[in-house]
Structures are given as C-alpha cells and as structure tokens.
Nucleic acid binder design. Structure first.
Ligand SMILES: [Zn+2]
Ligand SMILES: [Zn+2]
Ligand SMILES: [Zn+2]
Ligand SMILES: [Zn+2]
Lengths: 172, 172
DNA sequence: AAGTGTATTGTTATACTATATCAATCAGCA
DNA sequence: TGCTGATTGATATAGTATAACAATACACTT
C-alpha cells in the first residue's frame, strides 16, 4: 500500500495500454492480503482467485464471466452463488467496486482507504479508471447540504473516451 | 414547460409528502406531449400510459412493476417487450431517466432541456429527486479534462436520507 | 378510397443477472 | 478430539432485459 503512488491506475488516470499489468495484479493481491489481515478476515483461495480474475484487465468484468473462468481444478464450472459470495466479500471489504451502469465489477485502485468511488469508463477500449477527485465530492456534498440531504453513498460513473483512445481512430 | 419553475420537483429538491401530486403527473404528461410534438415523434397511448405509471410516485419504478399494472383494457397483462419499448422511447426522448443503481426508472423533472442527470435517492422513503447542479457538472468536467477524458454521459446517483425523513424517526 | 411503406405493437422464446435455501465441509479453538 | 461458526457446494428460482418474427396501425401517395 505504501507503493500505491507508484502504480499507474492509482494516479487516477488510465494506464498506458503497454503498462506492466502483471504488477497491477500482484500489487492488488498483495494489498488485499494486507487489508484482510488488518481487518481480521480471511482472504480464502476462492476469494483470492475471484479477485485475481477481476484484476485480469482494467475492464469491468461481469459475475458470469468470472464464473466461466472459475474452474475447480478438475475443470468443473462453479455455481453462481460461489462467485457472488466472493464478490460480496470483496465489496464489503473495499477490494472491488461494483459498476452499476454495467452490472460488473472492477478492482479497487486504493483499497484500505476511505474514499468515494468515482469511475471513468472508456466506451472505446472498455477500460475503467477510478479517480478520487475531491472537487467532485465537495460539489456533491454542497448540493446535498443545500437541500438537507444526508449522503450515505455516491455512485459516480462517467462514460466517455479515454486519452489513449482519442489519440487513435475509434475502435482501432 | 413554462410552469416548470413552479413545480416542486423542478426546484431540485424533494417535494413535501403532501404535495399536489396529481399536478406533477398532469404537468409531466403535458410536457411530454409538447416535447414529442416538438421532436416530431408520437406519444402513443402505450407510451403515455407507461409515462403515467412512471410518474405515479416519485419513487423509481421497475419495468416489471410497470408491466404488472399495464393491462390492456380487458385485464390481460402486457409482455416485457411492450414495456421496454415504451421505456426505450421515453429514455431516448428525455422524458424519463434510468436509475442504474436500482434497475428502475424515474420521470425527468425537466424534459426538453439539455441537462446532466444527477439523482438523489432517499433510502428511507424511497423517493428520488433530480437535481441539476452546475458545480457537480463543472467538477466532473474539470476532473475529466485533467486526464484528457472526453465525457459522453454522466451517471450520478446519490443515496442518503432526505430532509423530510430526517425530520422523523427512521422508517416511520 | 385504396394502396404502399414505415412505425408500432403483439407474441413467444430466451438470455442475462442475482438470490434463497439447505447440505456439506473447513478452520480455529476449548 | 469434538465443538462452533464460517465457508463452500448444489439445486432451484427470482428478477431484469432482449431477440426474432408476425400482426396491426398509421401516414402518405395515388
Ligand atoms: Zn476504490
Ligand atoms: Zn479507451
Ligand atoms: Zn432529467
Ligand atoms: Zn425520504
């Protein structure tokens, strides 16, 4: 977690397509292990495998996509509750986020810290980037305060085209 | 539409529970009629009925809830595509909004105008209020600009407790 | 008024997403 | 070891959304 600032996605932007993604995965698993230890909960093998599948790319992944890849060693496909239980655990402990507008999930880019979840989603390459912009949060809080609304959760998902994709013809 | 400013929900806040909701519905249907006329599209009876059902309360309503109430005069329940087609039409012409975090729909509080959709959702009374806060939009645009992201759509849904509900014990 | 082409609706089937329920197994501890 | 709660397995089902094609209604021309 101390190395977080050195990671591409943790800068609140989209990684270069060529970045060292193996490291993203390794870091995420490492952070998850520490977060679970700190919270006194078990990162079981199932949960670790699901987290790894979520992190296999920076694209949001659906529960059934995970399911299709989650074989039990002998090649048998798991049942839906297996994957949903793992996802629920990972959500509860802040290791992944749900992308409501896609019915899908992404790995949290700064686990173990309190933060509002703000996600940018590229409609071209399909990748997601979690940003952590205080100005958005402050603006939302101000708007809520004005009408006496007490915020419990924010769902902020911005669709558009990322910088890397804009530098190329669409869908290249 | 000229009377929009006089309507409760159009002030970007939660109506009093006792407000004249019949007028909300009537105004919404009236606005919809004008918007469709202006855009040269037909607000058919099906579409009008679905819009009316969406506006029957300020709570987001699911497609299948609409379906259950959408009888064809002789009491026969419509089929899913019927309601989804109407919803798609209403969405396409800015008469309703989809609440992604709930798989449900609400009537648009300012149809016929360009606006980003920002929704507050009360977890107590279940009602939704569409706000139109420029500060949030500006903050999102600023954050996107910084990382070279070109925004196409914003999904902003804030869960919490509305002022009316805070003035009472929970779930009263 | 009849004909023609498009938009809308009806109908059936199916895909996709998520949860309820109960049984079996596993991990940590007395 | 045996107990207890957490985790996983397995089956069934609920909830959300779309594909595909037929039938009907509408707008517009002739
Ligand atoms: Zn996060
Ligand atoms: Zn992209
Ligand atoms: Zn609106
Ligand atoms: Zn309320």
């Amino acid at each position: 977690m101390k190395r977080a600032a050195t990671r591409g996605t943790r800068k609140g932007s989209f990684d270069r397509p060529q970045h060292d993604h193996a490291r993203c995965i390794a870091d995420a698993l490492q952070s998850a292990s520490m977060v679970c230890a700190a919270q006194g909960v078990r990162l079981t093998e199932q949960r670790r495998r699901v987290l790894e599948l979520v992190w296999q790319s920076h694209r949001p992944i659906g529960a059934y996509e995970i399911l299709d890849q989650l074989t039990d060693g002998s090649g048998r496909r798991a049942a839906p509750p297996t994957v949903y239980r793992a996802l629920d655990f990972l959500l509860a402990h802040g290791l992944i986020h749900r992308v409501e507008s896609r019915n899908a999930f992404i790995g949290c880019s700064h686990p173990g810290t309190e933060h509002v979840v703000e996600i940018m989603l590229c409609t071209d390459c399909g990748r997601a980037a979690e940003i952590d912009d205080q100005r958005i949060d402050r603006a939302v809080r101000a708007a809520a305060a004005e009408i006496g609304f007490r915020i419990e959760r924010q769902t902020i998902e911005i669709d558009g085209r990322c910088g890397h994709c804009q530098a190329r013809p669409a869908h290249a």
